[in-house]
Design a binder for these strands. Structure first.
Lengths: 249, 249
DNA sequence: GCAAAAGTGTTAGAAGTACACCCATGA
DNA sequence: TCATGGGTGTACTTCTAACACTTTTGC
């Protein structure tokens, strides 16, 4: 848009951005990855948290932009990101502090009237990259505490929608739960995932029966170690069998 | 759409557009609503069909833009449109004829490198507005014939994705089938919808049993008329009961 | 031995599937 | 009387839900 003002502006498409809702699981609860905004002079005036996001570059697809954002903000590569929804209400930039932050961060002389944001969801196992989040000023916020904090732009709405989507997706596409489990997992861990996502306790025996009936959950000849109780069997998720059984779902 | 060209550019956001995938049902098969492109000098060079769509205006939300497109192109109001997916590959405007068409139609001096399109789905009963589609050069294309025709931009991909989405949505949100049925319908009509969407025959007795067990499908004290065979009962969809039973789904 | 979780079966009810015949109507 | 779709029941299988005790291990 502003070809003069800087090279950054030349290659950015400031009318379209991507935002990533990274939902993490820490074996106990769901957390969402938020970025602390860099603070300028009057620190108080700014909403401290936002989703990782960025305007797209002209030479990258939406999917590539979302991947870039995740790598830039968190160091995370190889995370499966799924496009989720576009946000384009006309009052998305209603807060002056949000606009100021955008201009400062991206070196813009001016901001468009509106930025349409394409949001992406990732569902990840937190333990994989606990150290990286500190480097990038990213922080895990428990989903249960979201009501108490202020988020920039319409990011609260986006997070709320994303969590609702994940709850639904687990029903139709159970493979996503294995993204937040280690490669080898116990039935207890698997059950904890389902209980956390659904928000209710599940019957142990029925759960065990149901899961071991699934052909793509295979028991390994291996037990967990260093636990202060009887060791549980380990299982793995067989992606090949899963895909064969479910076709293109 | 034709004011003064300068004003149009001022109020259009040419970087973002909406496209509507209107899937219609004519009691036999699924059809998608396509627009015939207005033809310039060299008619042959242009892909004849595209989805109804438009760049968004600065003072309208994405949802409003989609509604406007549908009204402008087809005269359809009060159709439930649902946002579906954003398309932002960098080569969306790869075809020169597509770019030329855009510039001519919207009076643009130049076209951005890329236009991100937000696609919307509507699912409608074709009979409601058969005459309107002629006025607007819109036409119903059987989904089964899509392989044989050329669509502009990435619209083939969009339509394919939309149809897959509808097939899935029927499972989780059965209310959408009633959008393409008359207010009073027979079990045969209802079954035809399911069979068309799923692409397979269903057992008549089991289907009947299952549907009449649903509290939100209520039998009326009324029979169909003017049929060359025994008249069937009419049923209606009770939206209030449906919503009560399914909460916020 | 105790704390903590692993592992395991049965029963009852609900839901889904397979399957075939007579009925009402208009042409 | 024939063509067309309307309307119905039963038996079998599968899935779901409810429910409690013994085993293994580390401390």
């Amino acid at each position: 848009m502003n070809k003069e003002s800087s090279k950054i502006n030349h290659s950015l498409n400031v009318n379209v951005s991507v935002d990533c809702v990274v939902i993490g699981f820490d074996d106990k609860e769901l957390n969402v990855l938020l970025i602390k905004r860099l603070q300028a002079g009057d620190e108080k005036a700014y909403s401290p948290y936002k989703l990782p996001g960025s305007p797209i570059y002209m030479d990258e697809s939406l999917d590539d932009a979302a991947k870039r954002v995740l790598v830039d903000c968190t160091g995370l590569k190889y995370v499966s990101l799924e496009q989720f929804r576009a946000y384009g209400e006309i009052d998305r930039l209603r807060r002056a502090e949000d606009v100021q932050w955008l201009e400062r961060t991206h070196g813009l002389a001016s901001t468009p009237e509106r930025i349409v944001s394409i949001s992406y969801i990732a569902f990840v196992r937190q333990k994989k990259f606990r150290q990286l989040t500190e480097t990038y000023q990213a922080t895990w916020m428990p989903v249960s505490k979201l009501d108490d904090i202020d988020l920039a732009f319409d990011h609260r709405q986006i997070v709320t929608d994303a969590i609702r989507k994940i709850r639904r997706d687990v029903e139709v596409q159970p493979s996503i739960v294995f993204e937040i489990l280690p490669r080898k997992f116990t039935m207890l861990q698997l059950r904890a995932v389902y209980e956390t996502i659904h928000g209710e306790k599940l019957d142990i025996r029925n759960f065990h029966k149901k899961m071991t009936n699934l052909k793509y959950i295979v028991q390994l000849d291996e037990l967990e170690k260093d636990v202060p109780h009887r060791a549980a069997h380990l299982y793995k998720f067989d992606r090949v069998v899963y895909k064969r059984l479910r076709g293109s779902i």
